[in-house]
Each structure stands twice: as C-alpha cells, then as structure tokens.
Design a protein around this nucleic acid. Structure first.
Length: 501
RNA sequence: GCCCCCAUCGUCCAGCGGCCUAGGACGCCUCCCUUUCAAGGAGGUAACACGGGUUCGACUCCCGUUGGGGGUGCCA
C-alpha cells in the first residue's frame, strides 16, 4: 500500500510545491565566506532514517549560518540507480520539508571528471596500476588484497587491473592525517594504517573515494557533515584532496553520532524500520519526524523539545558544534509522543486534511462525511498519537452495524443494563439533541434510577459503538443523530431479548 | 587482530571545576480532574561504568581499565 501524501501545511516559510528536480533556489552566492553543505545520498529505493537525519542536520547547519544546502545523487552504481529510485529521495526530503538551493548534481553525469582525476594522479605518480592478489596468495603481501610492490612496477592498464592511490609517507611528505572535527574534536590517523585504496576499479568505474572528493571540490563544498561511520574514510578524503591540489584549509568536517536500535547497533535494513517514508505511511507527521530526528544528538538550548514548526524554529538556535558525540537510540515511544503533540496542535481543518488519506483507505470511505467527522474531530485529536489511529476511533459513525466487542458486551449488558436501555429508548425521543443536553438528561436519568453515571453510560456506549471505550459518549450521540441512536439501542434490546428467551 | 570513536536516569537531552543532596523530556507508577478512554494538573521511580591522578574542590580536566559502537571491500 502506498503511503498517503501527508503534506506540510504552507506557512513555514520554506515549503514549496513539488516538482523535485526544479526544486531549488536560484541564487548562487560567490561570496568567499559562503558555507556550502551537501547531502549526498545513494538512491537505494528508500531513504534510510540515518540518511534522513544527516540530511536534516546538513540542512539545519546550512540554514543556521546562512549557508547553501546542496544535493548530490550518488548514482554511479548503475544497477541500483533507476530514475524512480531517485524520486524516492526527493519525495522523502519533500516530506520532511527540506529544500535545496541549487540543482541536484548527478554523480553519474560526472564520470569524465572522475576519470580525469584518476589520470591526473596516475601522471603525478601518486597512483598506480595494481593487480589483485588471490586469497591463497595473501601471505606474500601480509594479508593484503594487493601487492605494494606494484607501486613501482610501472604497470599499465590491463585485465583485472585497478588503480590504487599510493599512501606513501615519503611521496606524500607526511606521516599522519588529521582534522579538527566540529563535533568530535581532534582525530588523527597514522598513514601506516591506511592501505593503498582503489580509486578506479578494474571495470573502469571510479570508486566512492575519488568520486566523492572530486564532486565535493566541484560543488565547492565547505562543510562535510555526515555519519560517524565515515570517519575512517576521511583521511583518504583528505589525502586525495591534497593530491589533487584542491584547497583543504577551510574545510570543516562534522561526523554525526550514529542512530542505533535498542541493541545499540547501527540501524539495519533487516531488523529495523529504517525507511523514512514508512513512518509517513504509518501515520506520522513529517514535522513530528523532523522534530524527533533533530532531538537525536542535539537539543535546543532552551530545552523546549516539541516545536510546532521545527524547520523554522530550530535554525536560529542550531549549532553543529553542539551536537553530541555518543550514539542515540531511535525511540519510537518518544516519536509517538512528539507526533501526538503535533497532531493536537493542528487546527481542525488541517487535522482532517492530514487524516483524510487514512480515512479514504478504509472500507467505509464512501460513507464518510466531513460534517459528521467535524463534530468529533477535536475529541479524536487528543486521543490519537498517529494519523493511522483515526479511522478506528470514528468507524462507528460511518458503518451501519459497528462490530461488537463481545467481552465489552458481556460485561456491560449484565444486571439492570437491559432495563436502563429500555428507559433510555423511551425517554430519548423527547430529548434535545445536543451533547450538553444529552449529558444533562442522561445524568438526571441515572440519578433517577439511583446509578452512577459512570456505570449507567456503559451499556449505552456499547449499544451505540460496540465498545466499552471510545470517544466521549454525548458528543458521539450528537454526531450519530437521534434516529440512529434509537435504532442501535433497538438492535441491542432485540439481541438481549433473544438471548434472554 | 588492527584502526577510529563513544561512555550522566531504561531512552533522548542539560551539566562545559564549586550554582549538583545532578536538571528537563519520553516511558513507568500514584493521586486529582472526569460520561469510558485520552488530554490536562500534582507527585514519585530512576543515572554521573570502574580505578588512578591533577586540583583547595571533580559529573565536569588527564591517564588507564572495562564496556559499547563504527571501520577494516575493486559497497557507499
């Protein structure tokens, strides 16, 4: 089932209509101080929760400093990069309400540039052709999948031969690489622990390492904000950048803590619900998701966690340096709470608009009526945590005979219940049909019969809704209408009679 | 194995040498309100991993241990 298109309401200042590929701001600042952050997802068919958080933090970082937020689709893996998969990325970002400032760059369109970079490194002697080393032959190379001796063999292109970057202290003139990470401080790697990594595969395709760097240089990225799982490739990134003669001094890195599951492991596609859009389909609001994601690894200085419009309210107080450094558990219970708060904050018209896709997916969609729903909308809002819970709460209003919870029936219809229903059926025809009046009349009747309203209302509720718990009774009665209430009481009475005889 | 990172309530976030008998949020528990259930209100439960330093003084700084995570691909 495809998800309902829950859309942000307009008015948060940055939302705009769809058409993803044209969805960018036209300005290109030439200011030297311009800060440029990018989100560079691979189109895998779904946007991973962790990626979504990375996108959000890049966006927040950009917006918080007046920088530029860029998009690059890393679609060089042709197999997994069909156009519709790219659309999923746009759709997900749209759902979160994130906008980007320049046309997205397709990595696949930049293959020539990547090749050129490889050639350049080859020509400079910083890269070399390398033959694979068979598994059985690894003791010769110290367990490595390549032979360092190839560095100086002067090999040329050949079957099965890849190009490796030469991580050589002498050639590079340094013995370690490090950087001042915006969130984690100093991080340093000794070159001796970095292998000669492949930058061009035997099939001619450039690897992530080279493509990533070349494209970042091309896009003039100044702030690399990504997941902690990429810290260990940063030395390679730096090495390549220097080797290519690209500026490195004003570069900033920020490695975000990973989002983990209850087992403290990195979220995995197999075990965890990692697809962002699945949460939309499960009834979560985009702004609630964004709100919750922002709270993983970061918190607003004033401590007010739930914001009606996080994309408007967070940028002014967001600072990438405030991001925490330990991994954060994705807690669905907390998400539900945040979502519930966002739902309650919705105006009733918006609430219906947001819930509509879920209502339309029900078997009784054709009998749904806006006016009827409006009568109880506010009562529904405070009782659901996600939009997908809405239909269940109002179903009784739109089906002829709501399913009866037998347990509730048995418990509610004992003792005097049948008699009460009988009296109710007698009196109700004369009652004014507004919830306040219904409340008053029912209370009075309960008092007359010397029962607590608390107890008295139960059989009535079960007769009307089939359940023991649900929306406030009198509001429900008003929405249902006198005729229908009397009819359902009649049905209940009949059933009681049948059972009794 | 090797490399890198992390370490405050069950979970998320505060604390950035004295304001901490450690604060807020979620969850959980109790009570109040109440037409059920919610929502709301008032309480409660619960943490500085351990060991050394540094200091007049450490949750806060340093070192180590332990624990956890990430990486170690011709994936990205």
């Amino acid at each position: 089932m495809s998800g309902p298109p829950a859309r942000r309401s307009p008015g948060h200042g940055r939302s705009r209509s769809v058409v993803p590929s044209d969805h960018y701001r036209g300005h290109v600042s030439e200011s030297p101080a311009e800060r440029r952050m990018r989100f560079a997802p691979a189109p895998t068919g779904y946007l991973h929760l962790g990626s979504a958080r990375t996108a959000l933090f890049n966006w927040l970082a950009a917006r918080s400093v007046g920088g530029t937020f860029l998009l690059r689709i890393e679609d060089t893996d042709l197999e997994r990069s069909r156009p519709e998969l790219v659309d999923v990325v746009f759709e997900a970002l749209e759902w979160m309400g994130l906008d980007w400032d320049e046309p997205p760059v397709r990595q696949s369109a930049r293959l020539d540039a990547h090749q050129e970079a490889v050639e350049q490194l080859l020509a400079a002697g910083l890269a070399y052709w390398s033959d694979p080393v068979a598994e059985s032959d690894r003791d010769r190379t110290g367990g490595r999948a390549y032979d360092v001796a190839d560095r100086d063999r002067g090999l040329g292109p050949g079957d099965g031969r890849a190009v490796r970057f030469r991580v050589d202290e002498a050639a590079l003139g340094v013995s370690s690489v490090g950087w001042q990470d915006e969130v984690r401080g100093d991080i340093t790697f000794d070159l001796e622990h970095i292998e000669d990594f492949v930058i061009r595969r035997a099939d001619g395709s450039p690897t992530f390492f080279i493509a990533n760097v070349v494209d970042d240089v091309y896009m003039r990225v100044t702030d690399v904000i990504r997941g902690e799982d990429l810290v260990n490739v940063t030395p390679k990134y730096l090495l390549l950048r220097r080797a290519l003669g690209a500026p490195v001094d004003d570069l900033r890195f920020a490695h975000l803590p990973l989002i983990v599951n209850e087992q403290r492991k990195k979220l995995s596609k197999r075990r965890d619900d990692v697809s962002l859009l699945d949460y939309r389909d499960r009834g979560f609001l985009g702004e609630a998701m964004v709100n919750h994601l922002a709270l993983l690894g970061w918190g607003p200085p004033d401590g007010v966690e739930v914001r009606t419009d996080p994309l408007a309210e967070f940028p002014p107080v967001f600072r990438i340096a405030d991001v925490g450094e330990s991994s954060a558990t994705f807690d669905v219970a907390k998400l539900r709470h945040v979502d519930a708060e966002h739902i309650r904050a919705l105006g009733s018209a918006h609430f219906l608009a947001r819930a509509r896709p879920f209502l339309e997916a029900t078997p009784w969609a054709d009998r749904f009526r806006d006016e009827t729903f409006a009568g109880v909308a506010a009562d529904v809002q405070v009782r659901v945590e996600t939009l997908s819970e809405v239909p269940d709460l109002v179903e009784f209003l739109f089906v002829e005979d709501p399913p009866v919870d037998e347990g509730a029936w048995a418990a509610a219809m004992a003792d005097d219940a049948p008699a009460w229903l009988g009296v109710l059926a007698e009196r109700m025809p004369d009652w004014p049909w507004r919830s306040a009046d219904l409340h008053e009349r029912t209370s009075a009747l309960a008092e007359e019969l010397d029962v607590k309203l608390r107890k008295f209302q139960t059989p009535l509720r079960v007769a009307l809704t089939g359940r023991r718990v649900g929306l406030p009774l009198f509001e429900s009665m008003e929405a249902l209408g006198r005729e229908e209430c009397l009819r359902r009481i009649g049905v209940a009475l009949e059933r009681l009679e049948d059972a009794g005889s």
